[in-house]
Design a protein around this nucleic acid. Structure first.
Lengths: 123, 123
DNA sequence: GCCACCTGTCAAAGATTCCTGACACATATC
DNA sequence: GATATGTGTCAGGAATCTTTGACAGGTGGC
């Protein structure tokens, strides 16, 4: 079977990915998880950072689709949340950026209360 | 001749590139310049944004090596600064991130007054 | 019950980034 | 000289991210 064709990410998607990866801590988190999956608390100790902070960064990465978390139950019954890196692949070139830029939904004044019937054009 | 080998960017470099590209305005700027080179004032009018702001974004992009500006003198003697996009190419994968993360110079407590004799290890 | 470990969320403070309006300085044209 | 276009920079406020400490659960073992 042929290789997967160039995905051509949307502007919003690429934007989330780039801003998520454009942070030293999050980069290190991805690095740590690339070596081996891990659960929040352990990861926090590993890279020396508070749990609340780590939690937030992980959410940002997960929202960008770069990592995935799963709530698992260990042998001893303890509930643990493991995170794995998603095997992502993006190519950054002027053309890709140009194409993505054309599909950016103005983040200003967008889904405020996500899930509404989208009836806010009245402005 | 063989193709250029996988560059393997440093952490700081990748960090600058990603945070530079991870912004809707800068993405649009790169997009506009990809279509055709342009000078600051014209570009500002084109994408509708103040000159001071554009100037700042262009500097960020240039610092990341994504665009390059050249001060030229038009036929009529007016000094104009043209910007071109650099033909950059980056691949984003967990491995690349992991490798880059290992070479991040802790931005905290770095070149404060850049140019000193680097004698601040005493901490 | 108490301790150790896990999970999650909040609110408030700190740092950065983003953005705007005003300013200073050139050159060409009227 | 006055006007229009180009360049660049600065100060201050607005908007966002980052970060921390405290809190509220859960389960297992002593």
């Amino acid at each position: 079977m042929p290789e997967a064709p160039p995905p051509a990410p949307t502007g919003d998607e690429l934007l989330k990915v780039l801003s998520a990866l454009g942070n030293p801590h999050r980069m290190r988190i991805v690095a740590a998880l690339t070596e081996s999956r891990n659960y929040v608390s352990a990861l926090a100790r590993l890279i020396g950072m508070g749990r609340p902070l780590l939690h937030m960064h992980l959410q940002r990465l997960e929202a960008a689709g770069l990592v995935a978390g799963t709530l698992e139950v260990a042998e001893d019954g303890k509930t643990v949340k493991y995170y794995d890196v998603t095997p992502f692949f993006y190519q950054l070139t002027p053309r890709v950026i140009a194409r993505a830029a054309a599909t950016i939904t103005d983040t200003t004044e967008t889904d405020r209360t996500a899930g509404r019937s989208a009836k806010e054009e009245a402005k």
